Amino acid sequence: MSLRVLSYNVHRYGDDHEALARVVRACAPHVAMLQEAPTWLGTRRTRQVMADSLGLRYVGWSSRNAILVAEGIELKELRRRRVWRPFFRRYPRPRMIATQLPGGTIGASLTVEGVDLALVVCHLGLQKRGRQHEIEQILTLCKSFGLPYLLAGDLNEVPDEPVWRRLAAEGLTDLGSDAGPTFNSSTPDRRIDAAQLSPQLTGRLLPIPAAPADLAAATDHLPLLIELKPGTPVR
């Protein structure tokens, strides 16, 4: 059995809801890892409406990251982490003066064909040095499961910048190196969304079986659809 995982920034669920539902249903994921999902106070009904429209079940969230699952998929453990983003001022002298709004990450473990693995979703901030601080905390969460893992989400920077180099140094496999840009959805020109595998897993990105018009209308990012085959290690 392979596991289909969808990583998708849904832009605060503020665009075309019907187009978003068509995209996600066409992808038919077992697990959806969403960024900019409705997670704030007072959005319980919105979360339920969104999950129902996508044909999925909302099971966990942390700081606008959320995990939804298809019928029959059971997660064993959820782990959340608040991520504080340091904000640096260069003038009149370099110093850390505050923190950006807190971000977060959420991960879950599950068993596929007798193999235990973890899935972790993240959404990094807009401040370059802050992202480097965040990714260290997120990797700590990934490794806390003690399992092979997929890390996916919106990194808010393009390849060859510090976060991507840090993930490569960690030994993760970049599944999207040949996938093309992911932002914006109408005229994509930047790859800022990532799917990264630890060495004990293998997988690939699948084509998105959705109409271009729906992809452009659903949100400002393009999704990543990942097929994992836990029983076949990379090395």
Rank of each mutant, 00 (worst) to 15 (best):
E113W: 08
E113Q: 14
E113N: 15
G114P: 08
V115N: 07
L119I: 10
V120I: 15
L124D: 01
G125Y: 00
L126Q: 02
L126N: 05
Q127G: 08
R129T: 08
R131V: 06
H133L: 02
Q137M: 15
Q137T: 12
Q137H: 09
L139W: 06
L139Y: 12
T140G: 13
C142N: 11
K143L: 13
K143A: 07
L147D: 02
P148Q: 10
P148W: 09
Y149M: 05
L150N: 10
L151S: 09
L151H: 04
A152V: 12
D154P: 10
D154R: 14
N156L: 11
D160L: 13
P162H: 11
W164H: 15
R165K: 15
R165S: 10
R166Y: 08
L167D: 00
A168K: 07
A168Q: 09
A169M: 12
E170Q: 15
G171W: 10
L172D: 07
L175D: 05
L175N: 06
G176I: 08
D178W: 08
A179H: 14
A179Q: 09
G180S: 14
G180L: 15
P181T: 14
F183A: 11
S185T: 06
S186N: 11
T187F: 04
T187K: 14
D189W: 01
R190S: 14
R191K: 14
I192A: 07
D193E: 12
A195R: 00
L197K: 03
L197V: 09
S198N: 03
S198A: 11
P199D: 07
P199R: 05
P199H: 05
Q200Y: 04
T202M: 06
T202V: 03
G203Y: 02
R204G: 01
R204W: 03
L205E: 05
L206V: 03
P207W: 00
I208A: 00
A211K: 09
A211L: 10
L215F: 14
A216G: 05
T219W: 00
D220I: 10
D220K: 01
D220R: 07
L222Q: 05
P223W: 10
L224V: 06
E227G: 07
E227P: 08
L228W: 06
K229H: 13
K229R: 15
P230C: 09
G231I: 00
P233E: 13
V234C: 11
V234N: 10
